[in-house]
């Protein structure tokens, strides 16, 4: 006995989630890239494109509800759909963090840069790596890979600490930098949140495979 229709729909949901994930990844990357290069046009684009990601979340949610209503999934199928419904919320919020960074960049306008950005692009790269790995773990239903994502969150937290201390030093030394430094601090905070949300996705993968809800690592922030 096969369930062609259900399998097809579940595969469709997986494809949609991966597509949404890749859009989020691009948004995070572009938002920091725009900030670094002071490319306001690109920042505006990130803000605009967030609507696409919001719409995708709605569409995936609607499709999931359709599958539940018409296919009566249970056990691993049901767990997959529940995982998807949670993951798309995290993905959408990650995109909101990227949008937030783009808006900060627009707010900063043509202010002179406080310093060349080094650790913030590193944080963005790390957050995106965690996002990518969490979705790969989802595809492979790989608990080990999912747990690794959670462990990686420590790295992003450490980078955040570093950025925070550095910016604090700037502000203490020269109070005229407070405005610009605070903006960068918000950016770093957003990226730290992106990492946290990647660990949420990883936790959903653990649930999908084992049926057990676990917090696989408690973030410092």
């Amino acid at each position: 006995m096969a369930r062609t229709e259900l399998d097809l729909k579940l595969k469709g949901l997986m494809d949609d989630v991966l597509l949404m994930g890749s859009l989020v990844e691009k948004a995070v990357e572009k938002s920091v890239d725009a900030l670094k290069r002071r490319d306001l046009e690109l920042s505006r684009k990130v803000v605009e494109e967030d609507n696409i990601i919001d719409r995708m979340r709605q569409e995936i949610e609607e499709k999931s509800i359709q599958v539940i209503a018409t296919q009566e999934p249970v056990a691993r199928d049901l767990r997959f759909i529940v995982a998807v419904l949670n993951i798309i919320v995290d993905l959408e919020r990650m995109a909101d963090h990227a949008e937030g960074n783009a808006k900060i960049s627009l707010m900063m306008g043509d202010q002179p840069p406080l310093k060349p950005l080094i650790d913030i692009p590193r944080m963005a790269a790390k957050a995106n790596e965690m996002l990518k790995n969490s979705l790969n773990a989802l595809v492979a239903r790989d608990v080990g890979a999912a747990r690794k994502v959670c462990a990686d969150d420590d790295e992003i937290d450490a980078l955040y600490d570093q950025v925070y201390r550095e910016l604090l030093t700037f502000m203490l030394k020269d109070p005229t930098t407070i405005d610009r430094a605070t903006h960068l601090l918000w950016v770093a905070h957003n990226l730290e949140r992106v990492g946290d949300r990647a660990t949420n996705i990883a936790e959903r993968v653990v649930f999908l495979v084992t049926g057990k809800m676990t917090e696989c690592g408690i973030s410092k922030y």
Binding site: R3, V74, A75, R76, R79, G211
Partner: peptide, 15 residues
């Protein structure tokens, strides 16, 4: 119905 232990159960209930 959410997390059966035996793969045969899982295969049956998921059709």
């Amino acid at each position: 119905f959410t997390n059966p232990r035996d793969k045969r159960t899982e295969d049956y209930i998921t059709g």
